[in-house]
Amino acid sequence: MSSHADVERRLGELLRTHEEQVISRWTQSADAPRDELTELYRAILRAIEEGGRDLADLRGLLAELSRSRARAGYSPAETSKAVFGLKGALYEIVVAHADDEVLRGFIRFARLIDDLGLFTFEAYAEAREKIIMDQAEQLLELSTPVVKLWEGIVAVPLIGTLDSARTQVVMEKLLETLVETGAEHAVIDITGVPAVDTQVAQHLLKTVFAARLMGAECVISGIRPQIAHTIVTLGIEFGDIVTKSSLADALAHAFRRSGVQVSGGPATRVTVRAEQA
């Protein structure tokens, strides 16, 4: 009866002696660059000779392989199949040298390769997950600008569906801007919000109340007819919060409140000319 160590030594010897041959066959079946596979093969060989305990290096290498192949447009199934290909490549050598120890070694080896193949799949999924999360974060940052309309008047044009996470970001950003700029009037424009339900309305109300607590007045603008209809049907009370149908009306309201005079009526077209030197 031979020990695990013997089996591993024997397997290691076999892999080392026939390295060239196995790698050639593996390269044929796996459709991957030879030098990459050689590197991987040597890492596997090292791991086996060390008793298969420390797989950190090997995993790093596999994660790198998984990423580079994902970038090159391979599916995760193809990548893991390429790793599994090593079993087939080694099998022929094992058959030629068949004895008890080698066969047992091969079973252990196959198990290791299975793990590694599955690991490439995992690494692929992880990389994908990270990309999606990064993009969601970027989207969140992109979608909530706070713009200054006038001295003391800021606006938040909201575009897209509002959920709790986004409203939280909008709320924080708006309040921080109020502190930074000392603006006393804020316009929340919801022209680009496709639908308003009780939750969204709740978030809007919270934002307005928080701004009020800090000493700024909020006007909600851009309420389209359907949305006004929905809000009334849902029975949402906006109370004493000023709502306007368009951003222009909201701006006019803010002007009045802050004492800015605009000469000419709303029909007047304002023209700005550069002063002549």
Binding site: E172, E176, V179, K206, A210, A211, L213, M214, G215
Partner: peptide, 11 residues
């Protein structure tokens, strides 16, 4: 009032 405080009070 700080933004965080305002949000807390509203919540």
């Amino acid at each position: 009032m700080r933004p965080a405080v305002a949000i807390t009070l509203v919540e």
